[in-house]
Design a protein around this nucleic acid. Sequence first.
DNA 1: ATCTGTGAAATTTTTCACAGCC
DNA 2: GGCTGTGAAAAATTTCACAGAT
Lengths: 286, 286
Amino acid sequence: MVADGGSLSADTPSRAARGEAVTLPQAGSEGVAARVPRSIPEASVARLAVYLRMLGELAEQGADTVSSEELAAATGVNSAKLRKDLSYIGSYGIRGVGYSVSALVHQLERALGLNHRQAVALIGVGNLGHALAGYGGFGGRGFPVTALFDVDPDLVGIHINGILVEHVRAIGDTCRERGITIGMIATPGPAAQGICDMLVEAGVRCILNFAPVVLQVPDEVEVRKVDLAVELQILAFHVARKRLVAESPETEASLAVPATDVDVVPPPDAQTNGHPVNSTLNGGMR
Amino acid sequence: MVADGGSLSADTPSRAARGEAVTLPQAGSEGVAARVPRSIPEASVARLAVYLRMLGELAEQGADTVSSEELAAATGVNSAKLRKDLSYIGSYGIRGVGYSVSALVHQLERALGLNHRQAVALIGVGNLGHALAGYGGFGGRGFPVTALFDVDPDLVGIHINGILVEHVRAIGDTCRERGITIGMIATPGPAAQGICDMLVEAGVRCILNFAPVVLQVPDEVEVRKVDLAVELQILAFHVARKRLVAESPETEASLAVPATDVDVVPPPDAQTNGHPVNSTLNGGMR
DNA sequence: ATCTGTGAAATTTTTCACAGCC
DNA sequence: GGCTGTGAAAAATTTCACAGAT
């Protein structure tokens, strides 16, 4: 995940990984159509989306079937893990053969809820927002960006990709009208919580947050965060780690964290390196 | 997470979560400065970066100390988890009081390797790339974007934020010259693997990938992936799940995955919904 | 002969809960 | 009294390894 990223990725660990999250109370009657497992682990859901993309590519290349081994290699996971992930959505493989690409695509789309179209609203049409709005990839895959909002008078009123940019004060009405189910927040950090509140108030229950703040939301709202600065910091950690390994040929200073203060950059606070160089940390988006 | 978790975040799970990953052989001598634990769990590293940001904000607001409870609430995690995360980098809290904000910032920066400046290269200066290049937030936090590359003749030669856009064929030389440690790939999907290979060849060992492909790299290279489409699909899953819960007031059809085919969108392949509407899925970046 | 689906084991991550210090 | 640091328990995730289908 590191993804997370979680954060603009990757792996971004979601606070909703508690019990309640993906788990559903299991069926009532019993016996009959006990077709589907009770729940899908959060970690698996993230990977299912990746498999789906790769399957799309394979289909394009004319593949009829894939083995778990092949698909696993292409997506960089262990094949047993892949099979287990797929088993959560049902048994759609053929033993001795593999998976039918088209059938699996269909099942994954169903499992991920992609057979309902999701209308997406994007708030904050600055630098990053523009890039997101012009993305194209969304609409093609069932995520049409259906509404755009900003506060900047220079932006409100213009069209991007044929979509009118409205003032954020219209969020409530517009989202309800157009049945928005997902909100993407690409505003500067300080504005994000307010926008988030408006979205929640308008009934939006899933939010993708690009602003560098942790949003506070009611339990029933799902937030995923994409945070560039965090991603880079995670990589920086790995750079430092690799450096350490390289420098200590064997044992010696083999610590996970260098207790030494290397201080290429002046430590506590100095001229421009303290931290808030501009308070626009990485929310400098837009 | 991430997300993506990696994926444009979040939580992006990283394939590097195997043993080797964050673990280091533990110290030699013994006894003396056994200051630091042997390794930091991958999941913790991602959160440390988040704590660091929040601490920056707290410092700005003039806070001298924070309790684990406060910092946990602000970052949306459980306070015990936060304390455990912090314990991996050492014991810098004061019992009965909390943590000194400035001291903790310093320790986190050290642990994350932010006291070495990391030179970043960005490849692909299209839509998204432009947004990333103009980001500002990076440079302010020790991640100066130091080199830009593209293949488009209209882009090569221009300056963005004072940085010259070079042709990708210069990647090897330029990266070595400027000591690039982190590469960010924001090219269309099909170009990404080739660029990745060039970066690896040039000695770059950490890569942040925005292109919608799974990069194949040697073991010693760390890749994090930020994938917008995957993030949205994860949210779509949660939308569908919430819909189910809402529709079945109690038991009834309480399945994690609707076995019914709702098919608001024609299922297998129809006109424009099959999948590869344009092969520019979400790599439509740039 | 091959490849899926899956219990069971191993590992990682999270949470609990409390001893110890301020 | 308040809050950290951390063993130990619990939960989640990953991996193993193999029975069973084709």
